[in-house]
C-alpha cells in the first residue's frame, strides 16, 4: 500500500489552491449558463405537452452523452480550454433544471393560480409572484443535483485543458505513474467541494422558502 506524501502536498499547496478556485469557477460558470438557458425554456414549455416533451428529450440526450465525449464533440468548434468544458457541463445540467422547474411550476395548485388570477394578477404577475416562488423548492432541488454532478464531472475538464481539480488527478497523478497522493487529494477535495456547495444551496433554499418550514401549529 503506497503512502500519502504530505510533503508533496505542502510543496504544491499554491497549485492546489489555484486548481480549487478554477474548479469553483468552472462549476459556477456552467451552472449560470445552464440556468440562463433552462429557466426560460422551462417557463416557455411548462403548459404545453409537445414542446415540453421535445425540450426534455433533447436535454435528456445531452444528459446521457458521456462528458468526455461531449467535450470532444465540441472541440472542433472551440479551442481547447475552459470553453468546451463549461458548455459541456451546462448542457449536462439542463435536463435536471428543466425537468424540475417544469414539475415545480406544474405543481402549483390550480386553486392558488385561480385565486391569484381572480384577484387581478396579470399572467406575468402570476408567473413571477406566484408560480416561480412556489416552484422554488423543486427548482432548487434540480439546481442542487446539477451542482453536485457538475462538481464531479468538472474533473474531466482537465482532459480538454479546462483546469480545475481534475488536473490534480490526471496530470499530476495518473500521468505520473499513478502517483496516489494527488489522486487522493483531488478526490477528497472534489467530494468536499460537492458536499459544501450542496449544503450552501440547501441553506439558501431554507432562507428563500420560509413558508415551507412552518407547518400548522
Amino acid at each position: 500500500m503506497p503512502e500519502i506524501r504530505w510533503d508533496w502536498l505542502q510543496r504544491h499547496a499554491d497549485d492546489i489552491q489555484i486548481m480549487t478556485v478554477q474548479h469553483l469557477e468552472i462549476t459556477g460558470l456552467s451552472m449560470a449558463l445552464a440556468l440562463a438557458v433552462a429557466l426560460p425554456v422551462a417557463v416557455a414549455v411548462r403548459n404545453r405537452r409537445v414542446p415540453f416533451a421535445v425540450a426534455a428529450g433533447v436535454a435528456d440526450v445531452l444528459y446521457t452523452i458521456p462528458s468526455l465525449a461531449l467535450f470532444a464533440l465540441l472541440l472542433p468548434y472551440t479551442d481547447i480550454g475552459r470553453t468546451p468544458a463549461v458548455i459541456g457541463l451546462a448542457a449536462y445540467a439542463l435536463s435536471m433544471i428543466v425537468r424540475n422547474t417544469v414539475v415545480g411550476l406544474r405543481g402549483v395548485p390550480a386553486v392558488v393560480r385561480d385565486a391569484a388570477v381572480g384577484q387581478g394578477l396579470t399572467p406575468r404577475q402570476v408567473l413571477v409572484r406566484v408560480e416561480l416562488p412556489l416552484a422554488l423548492p423543486a427548482i432548487m432541488t434540480g439546481v442542487r443535483l446539477a451542482t453536485v454532478s457538475t462538481v464531479g464531472i468538472a474533473t474531466v475538464a482537465a482532459f480538454v485543458g479546462g483546469g480545475g481539480l481534475g488536473e490534480l488527478i490526471w496530470d499530476k497523478g495518473i500521468q505520473r505513474e499513478m502517483f496516489l497522493t494527488p489522486i487522493l487529494a483531488g478526490t477528497v477535495l472534489t467530494t468536499a467541494l460537492a458536499i459544501a456547495l450542496d449544503a450552501l444551496l440547501a441553506g439558501a433554499q431554507w432562507l428563500l422558502t420560509p413558508w415551507a418550514r412552518r407547518g400548522r401549529t
Binding site: G152, I153, T155, G173, I174, M178, T190, T191, A194
Partner: peptide, 21 residues
C-alpha cells in the same frame, strides 16, 4: 448520497491507484 457526491472519475482513479493499472 456519498456515491452521488464522489466524482466517478476520481473514484475509478483512486481504485486503480490503490491497486494496479
Amino acid at each position: 448520497n456519498l456515491g452521488r457526491t464522489v466524482p466517478t472519475f476520481a473514484l475509478m482513479a483512486l481504485v486503480v491507484a490503490l491497486t494496479s493499472i
